[in-house]
Each structure stands twice: as C-alpha cells, then as structure tokens.
Simulated scan of single mutants.
Amino acid sequence: MDDKKIEGFISDERCKRCNKFLIHYDRYDAFFCAFCNIWTEGKCSDPSCQFCRNRPERPL
C-alpha cells in the first residue's frame, strides 16, 4: 500500500455523503473527504490561482 502524507488538518465539519470528518489539504487550500475521495468545494474562477490551477480531479 502506498503511504501518502498530506499537510493539513482534520476539520470539525463532516462529509454530506458519508458523515466522516473532512480534511483540509493545505497544498490546495481545500477540504476533501478521504473516504469518498472527493473535494467538497469547487475550484475558484481565477486561472492563475496557485492552489486551484494544479489541483487534481480527485484528492487521493
């Protein structure tokens, strides 16, 4: 199994799909659910945004 290290923190907010705690991924300044493997927010509209322009479709 591949070990993956994510800089960020576990939020008090929960996923609307599975009710697990969300994780804030510092690299992309966005929250995601590790169990559902989805971002819980869309990218911003700025094409030069350092966080959104390289964010992958799935967090993991």
Rank of each mutant, 00 (worst) to 15 (best):
E57M: 06
D12L: 04
K5F: 13
A30M: 12
K4H: 10
R14H: 01
Q50K: 14
D2H: 08
N37M: 12
R27I: 08
H24S: 11
I6M: 04
N54R: 12
N54E: 15
C15D: 03
G8H: 07
N19C: 01
C36I: 05
C33Y: 05
R55N: 13
K5H: 12
P56M: 10
C18A: 00
E41G: 09
R14V: 11
K4G: 00
P47R: 12
W39N: 07
S11M: 03
Q50N: 10
D2K: 04
K4F: 13
A30Y: 02
D26M: 05
M1H: 14
D46A: 11
A34P: 02
D12F: 01
F51Y: 15
C49I: 09
E41Q: 15
F35C: 08
C18Y: 02
A34Y: 14
F31A: 11
Y28H: 15
F31M: 14
D46M: 08
I6P: 01
W39Q: 05
K43M: 15
F35K: 12
T40Q: 13
C36R: 04
C52F: 07
F32E: 05
I10S: 05
R14K: 05
I6W: 15
F9K: 11
D12S: 05
K4I: 13
C15H: 01
G42A: 14
N19Y: 04
K16A: 04
C18D: 11
R53C: 14
D26P: 01
G8W: 05
A34N: 08
C15L: 01
L22Y: 03
D12R: 06
S45G: 11
I10D: 07
D46P: 03
C15E: 02
I38L: 14
F32W: 07
Q50T: 11
N19L: 07
E41H: 10
T40L: 11
F35G: 06
D12N: 13
R17W: 04
W39E: 09
F9R: 08
F35T: 12
K16C: 03
G8M: 03
R27N: 14
E13A: 00
C15M: 00
T40R: 08
G8N: 07
R27P: 07
F31L: 13
D3S: 06
E7S: 08
I23T: 08
N37W: 11
S11L: 01
R58I: 05
R27F: 10
K20T: 08
G42F: 15
C18R: 02
K16G: 13
I23R: 02
E57A: 08
C44I: 06
W39D: 10
P59H: 06
I38V: 10
E7T: 09
F31H: 13
Y28T: 04
R17D: 02
N54P: 04
L22S: 04
R53N: 14
P47T: 04
Y28W: 11
T40E: 15
K43N: 15
P56H: 07
Q50R: 13
S48R: 14
D2I: 02
R27M: 09
N37F: 10
K43Y: 14
R58P: 00
F32M: 04
K4D: 01
K20A: 00
I23G: 00
K4S: 08
R55F: 13
H24T: 14
L22A: 02
Y25Q: 06
L60V: 01
I6N: 00
C49Y: 11
Y28R: 03
C52R: 03
F32H: 03
N54D: 15
C52S: 09
K4L: 15
